[in-house]
Each structure stands twice: as structure tokens, then as C-alpha cells.
Amino acid sequence: MTETLDLISSLFLPIAGKNLLLPNVSIAEVIDYQIPNKQEQAADWYLGSVSWRGQQLPVMSYELANQDATKDRGENPRIIVINTIGPHNSQLPFFAIVTQNIPRLVKVDENSITEDVDEPQGPIEKMRVTIHGETASIPNLELMESMLFQELQQHQSY
């Protein structure tokens, strides 16, 4: 009997100095970069909102929220629309992050990924991994959603 390995279609999302790794199902859409409408007195990681499918979509800088000191948008930035999964998803069904370039498809199975325990994690990273010889960070989407929800509630913009 042959054993079948489950492959998970995922994306490498290029951000400053590393990649984020997310399963395809967590991403609603990849859209062209547009400058977010910044909210006054907001946290530095909250970039503002952009228009998407007739609604205002809050945009987060992953790098700044993770305390990586950069605001560089890169050569070919994109906005990644993420489906929310946490307790606030009925009020905040989507949020977005900015990447520095176009995401790349990667297939993940249990034999191709290992946890990288030598690298320290940032506050919104769930895990650092090596996959197919490349390092990546798996973000804590529920924490990111919660941070954005609290920020939006504080400024009553949602």
C-alpha cells in the first residue's frame, strides 16, 4: 500500500528580508498596490485603508507590527487581502498586508517543512520554518486580526 502525502498549496509573500508563508485558502485576493488612506493618530503599523470590492479594507504593515524596522514597499508592491479566522471575523471579514513583490506559489507537505527554532520570533509570528531550503515566517493571523480590530475600534473607523 502506498502512502499519500497531503500537499497544501501555499504562497510565499515577500516582505522586507524574508517571506511569509500562508496557505492559499487564507488569501482572498492579491491586488495592485494603492496608497492607503492614513488615519491620524493611528499605530505606525496601521497603514490606513484601501477600497476593495466596494468596501474599505484596513491595511497593516507586517514588518512594523512585528517590530522589524522598515517601511520600504519594494520594487513591485502588492496588497494581499486576507480572510479573517478569529473571533472578530463577523465584523472584520478581511484585512490586508503589503508585500514587496508578487507572491510565489509553493506546495507544502510534512516532508518539505521544518521548524526553525534557532531564529527568534517577532511578536506576531507563530513560527519560523524552512521549506525547500528557504526560510519563512508563519504569521499569527488571529493576533493580527485582533490588533487591527482593536485599532479600528479605538478610532471608530469600522
Rank of each mutant, 00 (worst) to 15 (best):
T2W: 09
T2N: 11
T2I: 10
T2K: 12
T2H: 11
T4W: 08
D6I: 11
I8H: 03
I8M: 07
S9G: 01
L13Q: 05
N19T: 06
L21V: 10
E29F: 00
I31E: 07
I31W: 08
Y33S: 06
I35N: 06
I35R: 05
I35E: 11
I35G: 01
P36G: 02
N37H: 04
Q41N: 15
A42Y: 03
A42N: 06
D44M: 06
W45D: 05
Y46W: 14
G48T: 02
V50F: 04
G54A: 12
Q56I: 04
V59G: 08
S61K: 10
S61D: 10
Y62L: 12
Y62G: 08
Y62V: 11
N66T: 08
N66D: 14
N66S: 12
Q67Y: 04
T70N: 14
D72P: 06
E75K: 09
P77E: 06
P77V: 08
R78H: 09
R78V: 02
V81T: 03
V81Y: 01
V81K: 01
N83W: 12
I85P: 00
G86F: 11
G86N: 09
P87S: 15
P87N: 13
H88T: 00
Q91W: 10
P93E: 08
F94Y: 15
F94P: 01
F94T: 04
F95R: 07
A96S: 13
I97H: 03
Q100I: 07
R104K: 13
L105A: 10
D109P: 03
N111H: 05
N111K: 05
S112R: 01
I113H: 01
I113D: 00
E115D: 06
E115M: 13
D116C: 12
Q121V: 09
P123G: 07
K126I: 10
M127L: 15
R128M: 13
V129Y: 07
I131V: 15
T135W: 04
A136P: 03
L141S: 06
L141W: 08
E142Q: 12
L143Y: 07
M144L: 15
E145A: 12
Q150A: 13
Q153C: 13
H155M: 13
Q156D: 13
Y158D: 07
